[in-house]
Design a protein around this nucleic acid. Structure first.
Lengths: 206, 206
DNA sequence: TAGATTGTTAATCGATTAACAATC
DNA sequence: TAGATTGTTAATCGATTAACAATC
């Protein structure tokens, strides 16, 4: 256990642990241990134990971890016991795909709004959602108390939209636009540019 | 300069550098320096210089880096001078969005095949592409010489599909499915699970 | 009890930063 | 030339691993 600020690199591994544990749960498995979990996700057993020990003692010597208990603890640590409302900005193909994505269920997120500034898209139905006019984005997002947004607008618009979202009180942005953003301190930012993902691998090819 | 194996963490930053340089290029900028580039992407100037020095001497004392030259060098290092053919497996919403994505142009990739195993989807047109039958995936991918694939199938199918892709000669997999995969040595793997991206941020909220 | 596995400490390893001579 | 900025070295910082006492 530890009360210092936890390194972000450790925080970044917790969702991976959680995902693997949920998968084990689905297969009916009741317990696991650091070695088995590590092999499944390609991380050393020592590292998993060290990471978890930052937050408490979740295992038992001799038997390992009760999966359901560890899942609960991780959900608690990661602040995903409640379901977060998420706004998607940009109703292009990627925005559509995210708005329809089934994978957020049970993982702590629910998309409740989709915005676009294209009159041809405003009013369009995407599943349960209606595409909203981005010109009202600050007021609408603030009034809804939304803290998390996903950005699927063109690169040229991304920084301006991010600024508006921050003005509206958003504290976490998942950016699909292929551009580096700058955000005010206290706002979290993650990048999911598919080209970057590919370019990280081509170095090793051939 | 350096001939030892370059740390993967450095390789992972090069696409970020490249993306920012391309953006500067679009705005008509001719030169930059490590400090300016660093501020733009939130990385220290010293680190940028150190990273680049692994591959050669690309700058000039006193003036910094000529952007077009550095862009060329990074494209060379990252092996994206040529355009890689990419297969998308899974023609759901995410597969559709990727198949239509305009952002791969000029970044080294071109999607040339989309597969699905759903008879209702096979034969469907997505832009220029026709959804192919996944039951022929090994032969088709191998014959085309495709080395890179994006995985947008359900989690339950992802490992089996990954195995087939590897059998077909694929060496790099960008995985959108929310599950950890295991691949044979020499095959690269990157994850783009949107829930993981969000869960890395919720820890810090509230 | 004997065996297994945790949580934790210390050692190792690797990455980042600071500083500056070289030089454009 | 004077000023600016690189490439690189050494110092610092942080992360990972190995090892093992504790204990279920």
């Amino acid at each position: 256990m530890n009360t210092n600020p936890i390194p972000d690199i450790i925080i970044g591994r917790l969702p991976i642990y959680l995902r693997a544990l949920r998968y084990m749960q689905e297969t009916g498995q009741q317990t696991t241990n650091s070695q088995e979990l590590g092999e499944r996700i390609g991380i050393s057993a020592a590292q998993i134990r060290k990471d978890l020990s930052q937050f408490g003692e979740f295992g038992k010597q001799g038997t390992g971890y009760r999966i359901s208990f560890l899942v609960d603890k991780l959900r608690e640590i990661l602040n995903i016991e409640k379901v977060w409302e998420v706004a998607v900005v940009g109703a292009g193909d990627m925005g559509h795909a995210l708005a329809r994505y089934q994978g957020f269920a049970n993982r702590g997120f629910h998309i409740t709004m989709v915005f676009d500034n294209d009159p041809a898209k405003i009013g369009e139905q995407i599943g349960d959602l209606t595409v909203l006019d981005a010109s009202n984005i600050v007021k609408t997002v603030r009034n809804a108390g939304i803290k998390i947004a996903m950005l699927t607008v063109p690169a040229a618009a991304a920084q301006a939209v991010a600024n508006l979202l921050i003005e509206a009180g958003v504290k976490a942005i998942l950016n699909y636009a292929p551009i580096s953003l700058s955000v005010t301190p206290g706002v979290r930012l993650q990048y999911l540019d598919p080209s970057i993902g590919l370019q990280r691998m081509t170095y090793y090819l051939e």
